[in-house]
Simulated scan of single mutants.
Amino acid sequence: MVTFGGTGVMLLGIGVAGLVCCLVALVLARPLGWISAIAIAGLVWSVVVIALVTLVPTSPDTGFVPAETRMTTCSWDIGGPAPDGFWIFQSGQRTLNTALFVPSGALLVVAVARWRAGWLLAPAGLLGLAAYSALIEKTQLELARIDRACDVTDIIDNATGAAIGAVLGLVAVVVIRVVSSHPASRS
């Protein structure tokens, strides 16, 4: 049996994805400028991090979950019992689910702010992040091998985190525009 998973695998994946996204930022910097390049690469990296944290088994020794014992539907117990935090943060699972999507929401807004269509792209991107969360939950339901649970509360918490991030992204865009329009920043 091949084992796969655990914190080490997650962190290795996060590091490799970070290096690849840094290269993407370097390539995008010339045509888009550093702020957009970093925001786009950061957004891609944050989405990959979400996938790694939510879809890689928490332990390499998870084993197989027999099809007969796996859940057949997502939990609809909104706000129901959630486990305590895990390995890195000592917080509740709901807080972690919310915090996980904050960077994606913020980077999304900063990434699309340079275009006039940004006011359409940002809400569409937020809907995309919510759909991404739903896809992750569906994957957790279908892939019993990873020993994760599908929970509608996670989708709500993830979408809330993306929305909080979007508000922070709007603040960042305003600050970036004020700073970059200041005469002293042009010299």
Rank of each mutant, 00 (worst) to 15 (best):
L11P: 14
I14V: 14
V16C: 13
G18P: 13
G18I: 00
V24S: 08
L26S: 08
L26I: 13
L28Y: 07
A29Q: 15
A29C: 13
I38Y: 09
I40C: 03
L43S: 00
V44F: 07
I50L: 04
V53Y: 14
T54W: 11
S59E: 12
S59W: 10
D61M: 09
T62D: 09
T62R: 14
G63N: 12
T72R: 14
T73L: 13
I78A: 10
I78W: 13
G79D: 13
G79C: 07
G79M: 06
G80T: 01
P81H: 14
P83Q: 08
D84N: 08
F86V: 10
N97G: 05
F101T: 01
P103W: 04
S104Q: 03
A106Q: 00
L108P: 03
V109N: 03
A117Y: 11
L121Q: 07
A122H: 02
L126Y: 03
L127E: 00
L129A: 08
A131R: 08
A134D: 04
C150G: 02
C150V: 03
V152W: 04
D154H: 02
A159Y: 01
G161T: 01
A163N: 06
G165H: 02
L168H: 06
G169N: 09
L170K: 10
V171S: 10
A172H: 10
A172P: 06
V173P: 02
R177P: 02
V179C: 06
H182L: 09
R186S: 12
